[in-house]
Each structure stands twice: as C-alpha cells, then as structure tokens.
C-alpha cells in the first residue's frame, strides 16, 4: 500500500512538470501550427484534426446524446474550417478557439432539432456524469456506487450552465477567463461565481464522497 502510494505521488509530480513546460511552448507552437493551417498546409490541418477530433466529440456528446448527430456536426465543422481557413482569425490556443466555435454550431443544430419536435421533450442540454477512478472503486464498492448515484443526481439537479462550467473547470482545465468567454459572460467574476455556486450546490454529496475515499487518502499521506 505504501509503495503504491509513493509511486502515485511520483507519477503525478512528473506528469505535472511535463505539462507545465509544455503549456509554455504550447502558445508559440499553437500560433505556428494554426497559421500554417491557414496558409494551406494540409499536414497542419491533419495534425489539428487528429489532436482535437476526440476532444470535440466528447464535448459534443455532453450536449447531445445522439452520437451520429455529433459526428455530423464535427464533419461539417471541419469542412467549414478547411474551406474558410483564410478568413479565420489568429489564436494562441487552438483548443479554446475550436471549443468556442464548435459549441455555437452544436447548440444551433440542437435548437433546430427542438423546433422540429415542437419542444415536446425538451432535452436537458449538457449532460455530465461523474465516475470514480478505478483504484478507489474496490474500497467499498456497493456503498460507493450508491453515493455516486446520489452525487450524479445532485449534478443532474444543477442548471445546465452550472454543469457546463464544472466540466470546463475540472475536466478541460480552462481558465476562468476562457470559461467566461465561452459562456458569453462580460465579467470573469461571473464565471468564478458560477463555479462557486455549482460546487456549493453539490457540496453535501462531495463531502460524503470524500469521507468514503479517505482510506486511500491516509495511505497517500503516510
């Protein structure tokens, strides 16, 4: 147990250091890659596509559970980017640029669908499910799964904006500034308030969950 947690700490540390330095290099290389793409470099396009297609797909499935529709949106989205490459703006974060543009497109498609269905079954836009990492699962599986269900119910009870913000913050690691921009907030403080509010709304569930994972924590700190 002790050995195991030691390894984990080292791994976390190493991967973190790598990410830090990569992020600094990212801005410059994103700028370079994006401008190569805009100037017609097809290899750059394929590079961008391969890096982000699955991230965008995963993101799209949060808005819409219809896999095929998300795939269709992705297809049209990339065709649009490729055709209009010369008119696209500069960016130091390709990820943020793609997320923002893709979100608009997906939401438009879903709205179009809703009009058709006369809003009879207004889909709860932006679905989010929490899982717990495998190493925790065995501690007390049954109890844990019950709590997880309750946590997911608590998350389902959040507003869609709150859920979306949690996803950007924890899963995609976006800054408050980027979250504000994606959600069209004028002030960064609004994004901060939104995250705080979402976390407060699920805090009871979070605390219970944290008690359950405590055995893992003790080994980690020893």
């Amino acid at each position: 147990m002790e050995n195991h947690s030691y390894h984990r700490e080292v791994n976390i540390f190493l991967s973190a250091r790598k990410e830090e330095t990569e992020r600094a290099a990212d801005k410059a290389s994103d700028l370079e890659l994006w401008s190569a793409f805009r100037q017609g470099d097809e290899a750059a396009f394929v590079d961008i596509y391969k890096t982000y297609v699955n991230k965008l797909y995963n993101y799209g499935t949060k808005f819409c559970s219809d896999r095929e529709l998300v795939k269709d949106c992705l297809q049209d989205f990339f065709i649009y980017l490729r055709k209009n490459r010369e008119t696209l703006g500069d960016t130091t974060s390709i990820k943020f640029y793609l997320f923002k543009a893709f979100r608009r497109r997906v939401v438009d498609y879903i709205k179009a669908q809703e009009t058709e269905q006369k809003k009879n079954q207004l889909a709860d836009i932006f679905q989010l499910q929490i899982e717990v990492s495998d190493e925790v699962k065995f501690i007390d599986r049954q109890l844990h799964e019950q709590q997880l269900l309750r946590l997911n119910n608590a998350i389902a009870a959040l507003t869609e904006k709150e859920r979306e913000a949690i996803f950007y913050y924890f899963y995609e690691g976006l800054s408050y500034q980027d979250i504000a921009k994606i959600l069209n907030f004028t002030h960064i403080a609004s994004a901060r308030r939104l995250i705080y509010r979402s976390l407060s709304n699920i805090k009871d569930m979070l605390i219970i969950l944290s008690c359950l994972v405590a055995p893992g924590l003790l080994a980690f700190l020893r």
């Binding site: 596509y49 297609v53 297809q75 499910q129 929490i130 717990v132 990492s133 924890f170 969950l209 893992g216």
Partner: peptide, 25 residues
C-alpha cells in the same frame, strides 16, 4: 482528494471512425 478522484464519463470515436470522418471532410 476530491479533485484527484473526480472523473467524468468519456466517449470516444474509434480510430476507424476518426479516419473515415477525415476522409469525408
């Protein structure tokens, strides 16, 4: 501990779907 344990469900395209989609694009 919570921040480390929170894991969101994920969905991926298969490598074949990724290639097929690129071809269509």
């Amino acid at each position: 501990e919570l921040a480390l344990q929170l894991k969101f469900n994920e969905d991926h395209l298969t490598p074949q779907e990724v290639d097929q989609l690129l071809g269509d694009i």
